[in-house]
């Protein structure tokens, strides 16, 4: 009954089609950039931690506490409305005046990467701490340098252990990209909101973007599970 009354005429409107295409593209771009950047932040952070220098650890702990304990929306607002005004400005012909260098897309990408990166450091750390001490000692006694040991021994083992937790965090990251609409990043939810206000078709538009997010996250989960099974070592873990 309800399903028969759904109004999807807005899908044939060329303006809306262009908006939805751009929205989906921006959501995917933002997700990919943040996944890559936050993983790199996680790896660098955990590598620096492995040096065991107290002041480095303090800095990393400070970063983790700041970004893990504050809402991502607040971080985005702070970056976009406050920090962006403190750093350099560039002339923008489309506004006729100087504007902050960081636009809405880059602000969202930086804020979300730092947010998810803070979690990723802890996720990678959980994997590294699960690598048996004896394995590391064996590597050291075989003449591996600190960096070699980290890249060739610890990371391959630790990565397999923390993949499920990393997977969780990245799924959350994709869904958190919707917050970027609050600073006018033209992603999927940003355009969806406009379309349902124009057409009073909230349910229909929501169902539409629901399907798209399920698909996007589904693809990520399938890839991660495939990777997990590819990396499996017989006798290690399950």
């Amino acid at each position: 009954m309800v399903l028969l009354n759904l109004n999807y005429t807005w899908l044939s409107d060329p303006t809306y089609q262009a908006w939805l295409k751009e929205g989906i593209f921006n959501t995917i771009a933002l997700s990919l950039i943040c996944i890559v950047m936050s993983s790199i932040i996680g790896l660098i952070g955990v590598w620096l931690q492995s040096y065991g220098k107290k002041w480095i650890n303090n800095i990393i702990q400070f970063y983790i506490q700041i970004f893990r304990n504050t809402p991502p929306l607040v971080q985005m607002f702070f970056l976009f409305f406050v920090l962006a005004n403190l750093i350099s400005k560039v002339y923008d012909p489309t506004t006729g005046v100087d504007r902050p260098l960081l636009g809405s897309f880059s602000s969202a990408a930086i804020a979300l990467s730092l947010f998810a990166g803070a979690f990723n450091i802890e996720i990678f750390r959980s994997g590294i701490e699960a690598v048996p001490k004896t394995t590391i000692e064996a590597a050291e006694s075989l003449g591996f340098s600190k960096v070699q040991c980290f890249i060739q021994i610890i990371i391959p083992l630790a990565f397999r252990i923390c993949l499920p937790a990393l997977n969780n965090n990245l799924v959350n990251l994709i869904k958190t990209t919707t917050l970027a609409s609050a600073i006018a990043t033209p992603e999927l939810l940003y355009y969806a909101g406009q379309i349902y206000s124009d057409n009073f078709a909230t349910l229909e538009v929501m169902l539409f973007i629901w399907v798209i997010y399920v698909a996007l996250v589904g693809i990520l989960v399938i890839v991660m599970h495939w990777w997990e099974s590819k990396l499996k070592i017989p006798g290690y873990g399950n």
Partner: peptide
Amino acid sequence: IEMVNFPGTAEAYTALKDGRCI
């Protein structure tokens, strides 16, 4: 026109003052 839409007027006025739109 390239629209840059914010959730509320407070954000829009701030963005306008920051030079993010004409």
